[in-house]
Design a binder for these strands. Structure first.
Lengths: 344, 344
DNA sequence: TATATTTGCTTAATCGATTAAACAAATATA
DNA sequence: TATATTTGTTTAATCGATTAAGCAAATATA
């Protein structure tokens, strides 16, 4: 029925009365094998539909040509796009990727790391879950001696390569933009303080507010999980304030969407009464009404750089990994939710 | 520096003056190994942070405990959710999954299949790319003798397990609903005719239209790639008709969104002038204004069933795979875009 | 012609875990 | 006491590909 027996080097060798070594070398175009032999081997290999057993060669060579990728989730455009570009670059160099999602859970992330190490990946490219504070499992990757590259959500303490945007500067851009729009009381719904990137956004927000001589009111700065639901909650909270803000900068697009919905339910004019800026440039920000201003993080470039960084490490394995940051400039996409001029 | 040498069975054996065989068996709790030995082995294994080499055991056992998953893309809520549930079920049984995306490209899909077979996966769970017509690569999976399970986008001709919703019945539900809303001229922007599920939706649409004695006008039935952009195009096309439809059923949510935007740009009242129904119940259908009615495909259940089906095959490997369909009932989520009563 | 080099292949070890088969020692049964 | 069985372990083969080392034949160099 189904030709279940996979053909091996041995099968080819038997047919041609050769050793498996000769066959192996022939398939690798070794210079010490004659042209006729190579030709014959390749012919038989094709006829028998020979597929090399990856497990065997990986075991022998101590190299699996697989790279693990860990993302918090795949159903966001940012991560999906990063992954796609990592794959594109690595495929060209003969690597394949294994994607795992942590679902923002620390436990799931640890499991993912174990799975990937278990599968003997040659390296790991990861963006950390929101929950993750304990770096023990990431140290495990390092101690395994394979390259670890972080993007977007990273940690300086790990002393590995990192690719991301300048979150601090992004906050400045946003505040600057809102000030230009005439906003005088700018709130920030930020991510978790303990996550480096969100902390940087918060710092950027604070410094930019100070720089422009605006009120840095503690009730204007909220910490959020940045889900759509929590965006709603935090916006409702802001609306209960004695003096409402006239602009809200939200560190994630999903939360921004939730916030926008609350504003609309309360018949608040966006952007004129309250302007809104999100972060991440998820496709839906351009779909909803009003469209939401947001920060483009250059996911494609991040993916490509992460992959290239891995390849560099493979090329020179003796170079010890250290903290090596590649910071990209983010871009503010101004849309209706914060563009008063275009509406008035 | 980094303890690069991974500890192997041999290391443990040397320390305890045992054979690797005894160590291997001790770790597997073999009944022929004494309690003391087991204890000693496990203690040393823990101290040395022993991690079994998956490649070696997979090679020897002829089983990798890896399952390949192929999806058209990961940045859709449907596929992301299916994948997540597949993973959940399989992890419990000691399997790990490798996700690959075809990006709706036939070539990429073939590459994915090669990668997965190369990685010696124990089975493949897939949803086919839109482009895919040639089934040669899928036959390759079958001839390899490993289980192949299809979901959502499948093909009867492959004679394997399939999990999905009843697309034909879903179309009936939608048409029925629109008729109830008083619509008399219902258009359908469908997917590619050659893709089975879209074909079924088209057949369902046609039959339901006939059943209700409505006009089955060829200009009301359009074939689309179902991207947001193409949704726009096709809706613009419908608006140029002499007699415009009073309802449009679109076989994908992204295309439905594009269509909605066109309607809004043309100041057409949705749902009263033209009602709209999408397909897939992507989260954004509940986010946009008006919210879009859509079909919920029970992604979680599909994922779970797909994984369970794989496990069943593993449990009884001698059972030959045949066409075995598990069809779930879909659910119509009525929202503002097609609910005239709630608005008037 | 004698020696050196190249060519083309084979032998055998290796990667690390698993497992069938063998075997000695301890214990049980007749 | 002699034989059978159980217990606990070792030996050795195996999975399939790779590769260092070896070797004979062909060709080149002195």
């Amino acid at each position: 029925m189904s030709n279940k027996k996979k053909t091996t080097l041995k099968d080819i060798a038997n047919i041609l009365k050769l050793s498996t070594a000769a066959v192996s070398k022939a398939l690798q175009d070794d210079s010490r094998i004659s042209a006729k032999t190579k030709e014959a081997v390749k012919k038989v290999a094709k006829e028998l539909n020979y597929q090399p057993n990856h497990l065997a060669s990986a075991l022998r060579k101590g190299k699996s040509n697989l790279v693990g990728v860990i993302v918090p989730r795949t159903n966001s455009n940012f991560f999906s796009s990063v992954v796609q570009n990592i794959e594109e670059v690595l495929n060209k160099d003969g690597y394949n990727i294994i994607i795992t999602q942590s679902n923002e859970s620390y436990k799931k992330e640890c499991d993912s790391i174990d799975t990937l190490l278990f599968t003997q990946v040659d390296g790991i490219i990861a963006s950390m879950a929101n929950e993750t504070i304990n770096l023990e499992y990431y140290e495990k990757i390092k101690s395994r001696g394979i390259p670890l590259i972080l993007f977007d959500r990273g940690e300086n303490d790990l002393n590995v390569d990192y690719i991301g945007i300048d979150d601090y500067a992004s906050s400045h851009m946003i505040v600057e933009h809102l000030v230009e729009q005439g906003c005088k009381r700018i709130a920030h719904i930020g991510g978790y303080q303990h996550t480096r990137i969100f902390n940087n956004r918060i710092r950027g927000y604070k410094d930019a507010i100070k720089k422009h001589g605006l009120p840095l009111d503690s009730e204007l700065l909220l910490e959020s999980s940045l889900t759509q639901e929590d965006g709603r909650k935090k916006m409702e909270q802001l609306l209960t304030l004695g003096t409402r803000p006239d602009a809200v900068y939200i560190a994630g697009d999903y939360a921004a969407l939730g916030a926008l919905q609350v504003l609309q339910e309360n018949a608040i004019d966006v952007p004129n009464e309250i302007a809104l800026v999100g972060f991440g440039n998820e496709p839906f920000t351009a779909m909803v009404s009003p469209t939401i201003s947001s920060i483009e993080q250059h996911s494609m470039e991040i993916g490509r750089l992460a992959a290239q960084t891995f390849l560099e490490h493979v090329a020179s394995p003796d170079v010890k990994q250290t903290l090596n940051k590649k910071i990209l400039n983010a871009e503010l996409i101004v849309r209706d939710s914060s563009n008063k001029k275009s509406l008035s």
